[in-house]
């Protein structure tokens, strides 16, 4: 099963809408509640990353009976040094974004903590693709 959601860069008022939709789907599929929580936390972080840093993005959710695989692709500045971005507290968010309560530098580390497999591919000035996989059992 597959679902697609658009993510609008810069529109913080809408940040989290796609992850919330995925949560509703997972609840209907009777996925374990603690697992849903992990997945949604990871998705929310990734969704906010797109809103905060990129111009536009897409969330593609592929569901099977034993895993969920979410691919978030954005058109944006890209990440020059992924290993640096994975460090807790490291952030390139602008002061305006931080004022809104985002950009604490916990995004990618938090995603890694809350999914089973994380792959990040990024090209500077083109965009980033984040692929998260979580197994149901």
């Amino acid at each position: 099963m597959e679902f697609n959601f658009n993510i609008e860069g810069g529109n913080f008022s809408h940040a989290g809408a796609a992850s919330s939709e995925v949560k509703k789907v997972l609840k209907q599929l009777n996925v374990d509640v603690s697992l849903i929580k992990r997945i949604v936390v990871a998705l929310y972080e990734a969704e906010v990353n797109v809103v905060a840093h990129a111009y536009e993005g897409m969330m593609k959710v592929v569901l099977s009976s034993d895993f969920i695989e979410v691919t978030i692709t954005d058109r944006g500045p890209g990440i020059p040094d992924i290993s640096l971005a994975m460090k807790e507290g490291y952030s390139t968010a602008s002061p305006q974004v931080r004022e809104m309560g985002f950009g604490a530098g916990m995004g990618l580390p938090n995603i890694k903590k809350n999914c089973d497999k994380l792959e990040i591919v990024s090209k500077v000035n083109e965009g980033t693709t984040v692929k998260m996989t979580t197994f149901f059992s």
């Binding site: 789907v25 609840k27 209907q28 599929l29 009777n30 509640v33």
Partner: peptide, 20 residues
């Protein structure tokens, strides 16, 4: 205790078929 009313089925495969 939880009493979820959201789930379409106990079995995830059946729930997925129903969702489709």
């Amino acid at each position: 205790l939880p009493r979820s009313i959201e789930k379409l089925d106990e079995n995830i495969l059946v729930a997925m078929a129903k969702m489709e």
